[in-house]
């Protein structure tokens, strides 16, 4: 089993987001970076599959050298080697192109990634990679078993779940509970020292530019109204919120 796991280097979930340079850049001061939480689950499942079936895991990140600590953590968790495409990940298509470029040369059985990143949350890179490679892509996958050359998956759909079978190779967008979340052990951390990170230059052109970032409006205050006081709810909706 030859697995590629694509990971994002994203601000910690508790980071305070602010912008600089006329709201065109993220203010990185004081921000801790982590592996995208959904990507973490993809990697964890890859590690479990490798334990079960053997094979190799390569981690791929599109990002500058500030991604290296997060990449090394993935190596510590169980990836064998890593590839970093040395460019700022500006938009989904550009990132998908970079991944596809590497994947075309390597014949991976599985390309796993999170269902979406948690900074841009576009959630389309797996689909784009699948199209660029001409192989199926499925997301969000919550369960994944491999039997021979067939992947048996459970996918979340609107209002329920869907069981799917598909032949490898595949691109999958993953989410919990696809695997047990893994912590890097001491042995892994020590061995990550010697695992290689190959740095490749990007191909293709960045076609998008960011004009402006804005933060979502702060959430309004919430009022709790007990179920038995439905009348006061109607009163509030009618007279205070003026929506009915």
């Amino acid at each position: 089993m030859k697995i590629l796991v694509c990971i994002t280097n994203v601000p910690d979930t508790t980071a305070k987001i602010a912008f600089t340079d006329g709201d065109t850049q993220l203010n990185k001061a004081g921000i801790t970076y982590i592996t995208g939480p959904y990507d973490d689950y993809a990697l964890s499942r890859a590690v479990e599959l490798k334990e079960q079936l053997g094979g190799t895991i390569t981690v791929l990140n599109v990002g500058l050298s500030d991604s290296d600590p997060v990449i090394r953590k993935c190596l510590a968790i169980g990836a064998d080697d890593a590839i970093r495409i040395n460019v700022e990940p500006t938009d989904s298509f550009f990132v998908a192109e970079q991944i596809a470029q590497v994947a075309k040369q390597e014949n991976y059985d599985l390309i796993l990634m999170g269902r979406e990143s948690i900074d841009f949350n576009s959630g389309i890179v797996h689909g784009l990679v699948g199209e660029l490679l001409g192989i199926p892509s499925i997301s969000p996958v919550m369960k994944l078993e491999i039997e021979g050359t067939v992947a048996k998956m459970t996918r979340e759909i609107e209002g329920g779940k869907e069981d799917i079978e598909a032949h490898l190779p595949l691109v999958l967008g993953c989410q919990e509970p696809i695997a047990e979340w893994k912590i890097a052990g001491m042995r892994g951390i020590m061995s990550a020292r010697t695992k290689p990170i190959k740095v490749l230059e990007p191909t293709g052109q960045v076609t998008t530019t960011t004009e402006l970032y804005t933060l979502p409006a702060p959430k309004g205050a919430v009022k709790m109204i007990a179920a038995e006081e439905a009348e006061s709810l109607i009163d509030l909706l009618r007279n205070e919120a003026k929506v009915i």
Binding site: P69, R72, K73, I183, A184, G185, M186, I189, A192, R193
Partner: peptide, 17 residues
């Protein structure tokens, strides 16, 4: 170092989970 911080993070992750 990054490695020492990773070790500390492992401990913190262990406590958290």
């Amino acid at each position: 170092s990054e490695e020492q911080q990773m070790i500390a993070q492992t401990c913190l992750d262990f406590l958290r989970t």
